[in-house]
Simulated assay, not measured.
Amino acid sequence: MRERTRRIVAGMILIGVACGVLFVQTASYDIPPPPPPGDAASISRQSAAAMLETLQVKGRSARTHYDRAQFGDGWQRQGICDTRNIILARDLVDEVVNSDCRVLSGELHDPYSGQTISFVRGASTSDAVQIDHVVALGDAWQKGASQWPRARRIAFANDPLELLAVDGQANQRKGAGDAATWLPPNKSFRCQYIARQIAIKARYQLWVTAAEKQAMQRVLGKCPGQTAPMAES
């Protein structure tokens, strides 16, 4: 798989006290995406509906022993950057990133609500934009991930294909829901959302429940030409 990096230009503000002039100096940082698991199924550009038919249909297993820490202690780091800031920098526009690879501000065109949200880093403001696991970790746990080694779960939780910057309130309402229990309020994004879930489940060989598959089919019935996204590389 061809390695790709994203270059983010971070602004460092230097104040010239003697002359009272504000200077801006820029520094560049190569930010690689988290590496995909080596044994994951490769995803090609194909019909989401056809890909759905390749997923195993089974009942939901017990949630026994599930904990967020089963997927790693927080976000994985890539050099000075962590996954949260990598995804924020990818999904926001007009983003400002400091020399520590922290996204300080930006605008999110939120796919879940259809609204534009201003992101400003801060104790009381950062949660306005959250990073959603498109296939919720709790859902993944009950549909195959509980049997994975820890390293695979960590890779899953940090895979860019599995992550989207979204409205914090919508993310909280989703919780661990699958397609049978939660869909984005923004109906124009539902086909893309379902296609992304299917691509993730195919990539990691997670199964779907019968009710979940039926919900996915109902959504895709309105967009028969919808393709599944390819894994980011």
Rank of each mutant, 00 (worst) to 15 (best):
Q76N: 07
R63G: 13
Q115W: 07
A50L: 14
D91E: 03
D67R: 12
I86R: 13
G122P: 09
A50E: 13
Q78T: 13
N85P: 09
Q56W: 07
A89F: 07
S61R: 08
V96T: 13
S124Y: 08
M51D: 04
D110A: 02
V129S: 00
R90K: 01
I117A: 04
I86F: 15
T116H: 05
D73C: 06
C81P: 09
D100W: 13
S105R: 13
V103E: 02
S113T: 04
K58S: 15
Q115T: 10
E107N: 10
W75C: 02
G74E: 00
L52S: 06
D67Q: 08
Q56K: 10
D73N: 12
T125P: 08
S61G: 15
S61M: 15
Q76D: 06
E107V: 14
R68S: 02
L52H: 09
Q70D: 06
Q76A: 15
K58I: 11
T54V: 07
A50G: 13
G122I: 03
E53Y: 08
W75L: 00
K58H: 12
D82V: 00
S126A: 05
Y66A: 00
R77T: 11
A62S: 15
V96P: 07
D91R: 01
R60M: 07
F119R: 03
A62V: 11
S113V: 03
C81Y: 09
T54H: 10
F71V: 03
H65C: 10
A123W: 11
V103M: 04
S118M: 09
V93K: 14
G72H: 02
L55A: 03
A123G: 13
R102D: 12
G79N: 04
L88D: 00
